[in-house]
Design a protein around this nucleic acid. Structure first.
Lengths: 215, 215
DNA sequence: CCTACCGATCGGTAGG
DNA sequence: CCTACCGATCGGTAGG
């Protein structure tokens, strides 16, 4: 299937509907109706409903990966590192801001990426599972490094990464682009919350080590 | 519909299937098959598919509310308050632990409560929206109090509550009851992460106030 | 992009 | 809890 403007429209409309009603809860005719065409006419542009889901999810995955790559590169060579701030904190803050930016830029697609990828089947689903896992490992690595550096508390990297990533992905469920909160401000707020949650010293609530962490 | 043992089994099975495939992605016959009965036979025990969803969601909501009530009562009269720990920190930690306990106790029902309540219709959906909102306001209030006390940074209570609650609800998507992490240890870890994320002083990452918060 | 149509499956009912 | 069945809707195809 070629990449036409109409195809883009279909994916935009489908993103919104999948986000609101889920993949299974959205019919091909629902998508068509939103575009003012007949259900069967959709097949002049797409090969299947799964195909639409795949395009949305795959494209969103690439955006998250690209954004995280850019953030990592910038954080590694950034001047912030000289301000006496631990490298891991700078890197984590950059990853968080990058993720928030992608989610807030298109909550429809981000939401489908987060919640509906499970509706993919076969090799496509397996591929997405791998890519999601690799993405999560970026967070675990930074946290692991920060713990080693002493920039972060001795936290379980798997638990901490899950804590942060679910929070980050949750933005897709409540954020309103036309709301009170600007995307950049949200990125700042989340970066601070993330880094401070891991900051060592003076924990007022006790928490024992969990078990052998596996990265 | 009376509350029989069979009815309980149906809801258990339905919770698992709704969690894995969503409400729309699960057919009445899928539920019946998991119970080794015919699709139509299910209607000897339930009045509709919506009815099953409602039971699961309503019961889960009550559990979260009851657990939070108990946590708030305990935190208010607890001896922890005398250890020089700010009341808001104690209350927030208690709320977090209570939430983690409910989620880990039955991730199937918790997961349906978190993700599938949108599939409810009419007044039931509206009621759940109200109850979810009231639940979220518990978190906002504690955060607001903590900020006033000086126990927490000057964070936007709406953003901070969303950050924490989405993280808390996310547990339902990745936690495995038979895994490496014990529920109580997870509650401890999350309570520490939550309280420390809001702890004032030494923020290494800048974050400006967002706008007029609305509680 | 349309009309006409396909077999399969959906939630649910009737009557035992 | 079963068999038999209902109308509606599903994703998708044929042929223009």
């Amino acid at each position: 299937m070629v990449e036409t403007a109409r195809r883009r429209e279909i994916e935009d409309v489908a993103s919104t509907l999948f986000r609101e009603h889920g993949y299974a809860g959205t019919s091909v005719r629902d998508i068509a109706r939103a575009l003012d065409i007949q259900g069967a006419s959709l097949y002049a542009h797409v090969t299947s409903k799964q195909d639409v889901l795949w395009s949305i999810v795959e494209r969103a995955a690439t955006r998250f990966e690209t954004s995280a790559d850019a953030a990592s590169t910038a954080a590694a060579s950034g001047s912030d590192a000289m301000d006496g701030i631990a490298p891991a904190s700078v890197r984590l803050a950059a990853l968080v801001r990058a993720h928030v930016a992608v989610v807030t830029d298109d909550i429809g697609r981000a939401s489908v990426f987060v919640h509906e990828w499970r509706s993919l089947t076969g090799e496509r689903r397996a591929q997405m599972a791998r890519r999601r896992d690799a993405y999560e490992r970026r967070f675990r690595s930074v946290i692991d490094d920060g713990v080693a550096e002493g920039a972060f508390v001795a936290v379980d990297p798997v638990v901490a990464a899950a804590f942060l990533l679910t929070s980050l992905n949750g933005i897709a469920t409540w954020f309103r682009p036309d709301g009170r909160i600007a995307p950049a401000a949200l990125g700042d707020a989340y970066a601070r919350l993330a880094v401070d949650a891991l900051r060592p010293g003076g924990a007022v609530v006790r928490a024992e080590p969990i078990a052998e962490p596996v990265l």
